[in-house]
């Protein structure tokens, strides 16, 4: 074999390796999910969805955890979406090129890399203890809001940046103020991108476990939250609790709860991807 042929063969070999790697993670994920479905699918029934936690695996259910997750999702959305979009608008359109602006920039990049468990420690000291919220839905939502804020900010800024400058100029030239331009032109034009980022961020919040454990969310809560000051559990914590128990029945329960959790996060991701594609098609100015 001559040199060129060897090179050609290496090239082909790498191509095969590339395809193998690309599908390796996905295939493993599929295998994992398959194993979980096999373990847990039969456990999902009406009783499982509507029962409170219990010491006996066959009586236990995910009602409180599911309601807790819904509460957390809703409150986090209410807090984080306006804050995140507001901060992004400020950074993109209002802050001048100053030291403070670059400080904000590096700060957000840093926050995005802070481990989620550290946000838990922050929430524990500030929301649970200092502001005396206790290990409540409110404290959990505030903690997760701070956690997903950088994700929303980054996504919103990207979406705003993608709006052509000519639109902004045209609006200013018509005598519109900054906010009128933002509200009437830039936000509607970047809506799809912002929505994508927001959904992805919220899906992250739904799957978070560690910061909520740190602020003191419990695995065993015998009631569903009825106000933001109530104690709560969430699906991931319930799963964690069941995984760490020795009885096989609880492992089955964990698998069943994982199926529900994955259903939620995958649906949210699918919706996000759908909006992103739809929006990208529209953006051909």
């Amino acid at each position: 074999m001559n040199n060129a042929k060897i090179n050609k063969a290496k090239d082909k070999a790498f191509q095969m390796w590339g395809i193998f790697c690309t599908f390796l993670g996905l295939v493993l994920l599929a295998v994992f999910i398959g194993a979980i479905i096999k373990d847990g699918i039969l456990r999902i029934d009406w009783q499982f969805l509507t029962s409170l936690p219990s010491r006996k695996p066959e009586n236990a259910g995910i009602l409180t955890a599911m309601m807790g997750s819904l509460w957390i999702l809703g409150l986090t959305a209410i807090v984080a979406i306006p804050l995140g979009i507001g901060a992004a608008i400020y950074l993109e359109e209002y802050s001048k090129k100053s030291r403070f602006a670059s400080l904000l920039e590096i700060n957000i990049s840093n926050l995005a890399g802070v481990p989620s468990i550290i946000y838990g420690l922050l929430g524990l000291e500030i929301f649970v203890r200092l502001l005396k919220f206790g290990p409540s839905v409110l404290a959990g939502s505030f903690t997760l809001s701070l956690l997903i804020l950088p994700i929303i900010i980054v996504a919103t800024r990207e979406a705003i940046k993608a709006v052509p400058k000519t639109i902004k100029e045209a609006s200013f030239a018509m005598g519109a103020t900054k906010w009128q331009t933002m509200w009437n032109q830039i936000l509607p034009a970047s809506f799809g991108g912002i929505l994508t980022g927001v959904i992805l961020a919220l899906s992250r919040a739904v799957g978070e476990t560690a910061p909520l454990i740190v602020i003191g969310a419990l695995a065993y809560v015998p009631f569903t939250p009825s106000s933001p000051m109530d104690e709560f559990s969430v699906l991931p914590i319930q799963i964690f609790n069941w995984v760490s128990r020795p009885q096989h029945g609880f492992v089955i329960n964990a698998a069943a709860a994982i199926i529900i959790l994955l259903l939620v996060t995958f649906t949210m991701n699918a919706i996000a991807v759908y909006f992103r594609n739809k929006w990208q098609k529209k953006v051909n100015w």
Partner: peptide
């Protein structure tokens, strides 16, 4: 591929321990 990062980590924990 990004789906890999979207799976909640508690689920990965289950995979690691049980599978």
């Amino acid at each position: 591929l990004e789906l890999l990062a979207a799976v909640p980590t508690v689920v990965y924990g289950f995979f690691a321990l049980m599978v």
